[in-house]
Design a protein around this nucleic acid. Structure first.
Lengths: 188, 188
DNA sequence: GATTGCCTACTCAAATTTGAATATAATTAG
DNA sequence: CTAATTATATTCAAATTTGAGTAGGCAATC
């Protein structure tokens, strides 16, 4: 569904062909906000066309390159866009953190192996935190606040993650993951 | 892949049939850590069996109920378990927050509609934060620290989310999402 | 004592995602 | 100047996920 939203959102600005949508999404870093794969993009476009939410405007043929099929949004598409967008604001579906599952089964694995991977991961996350903050700072003067919220949100989330990883790492090193009855050591 | 990990992790403890795996996962709240759907569970079991990572031990037939097919993990399955688990600790794949995408296209929508949904969402998130903290506190005396890390992580993440939503809400109300050149108002 | 709904156990079609393949042109590197 | 890479534009099979269906039994309600 999120790919459909993106397609409709872009067509709200101007007519485009799918490949062009990808270029625009990359240009605006929308590919860092949602998963962008060509297969899904073309599939979303096909489905929208089949249901009349977008329509072919023109096919540009040229002897040397594949044809470009240009699409335009319809009224029904505009309605769907609003519906999908509001739905994303509304519904609060749980995001599953993959490592939580790993942690749930971690007692079957040698903690030393986990510790080693966590070290590397903490380093990466530290890097991400710094990068996210920089990206925020650099964009302050030039982008609308909606985009700043995205960027600062990313920074805060990665910082939360980093602190979590560090606490976890300490316990893994100390072989305490299996201990029962002791509260975590939390900073204020 | 995460469903395969869960299946292998459970079979590491004892032989089971798929429906029983679901019961155990629910009992241990693993269904709150990963998405649990019967279709995916049976699919994962089929794939693992096809590749020899688990094997049928017994089929319990009874005239009135469907057959129960009990599985046992193989050595190849144990190897896969370790590999999958370590992989989850290692790879740090971006989690896409669905609302970020909505925000990226929000300029096409009436802010009043967004504000209304955000109010409800903030209330829900507040509730989740409180609940997550309670769950952590209640489990301190009775579960291993690995589980506490999960619970406290959930609490912190939802708190981060709540603060983010509140800042966003203020801007939506003030029609400032489109403003350029002003840093966000951030608390220390 | 009939109805309603949940529990057991699994199955399956349809929708979607993934990942790679295609074929040509333009660009960059050595 | 030529080989290797990147860009253009789309397609497709295969893997996976989704969501609902099946069908009998048991429990609670009214």
């Amino acid at each position: 569904m999120s790919m459909k939203l993106a397609v409709l959102g872009l067509l709200l600005e101007r007519d485009m062909h799918p490949y062009e949508m990808m270029l625009v999404m990359k240009d605006r870093a929308i590919d860092q906000i949602t998963k962008l794969q060509m297969g899904s993009l073309y599939y979303a476009v096909d489905q929208l066309a089949k249901n009349g939410q977008i329509a072919q405007v023109e096919i540009i043929r040229s002897s040397d390159r594949p044809d470009k099929t240009i699409y335009r949004i319809t009224d029904s598409g505009k309605a769907l866009f609003e519906q999908l967008l509001l739905q994303l604001f509304k519904k609060n579906d749980t995001l599953y953190h993959p490592m939580y599952l790993a942690l749930a089964f971690s007692r079957h694995i040698d903690p030393a192996k986990i510790a080693k991977l966590l070290e590397e991961r903490i380093r990466e996350t530290e890097h991400q935190v710094n990068l996210a903050y920089q990206v925020y700072e650099e964009h302050v003067p030039v982008v609308p606040r909606a985009a700043l919220h995205l960027m600062y949100g990313k920074y805060e989330h990665s910082l939360t993650e980093l602190n979590w990883l560090k606490r976890l790492y300490a316990d893994v090193r100390a072989h305490k993951l299996g201990d029962i009855g002791k509260p975590l050591e939390l900073k204020e």
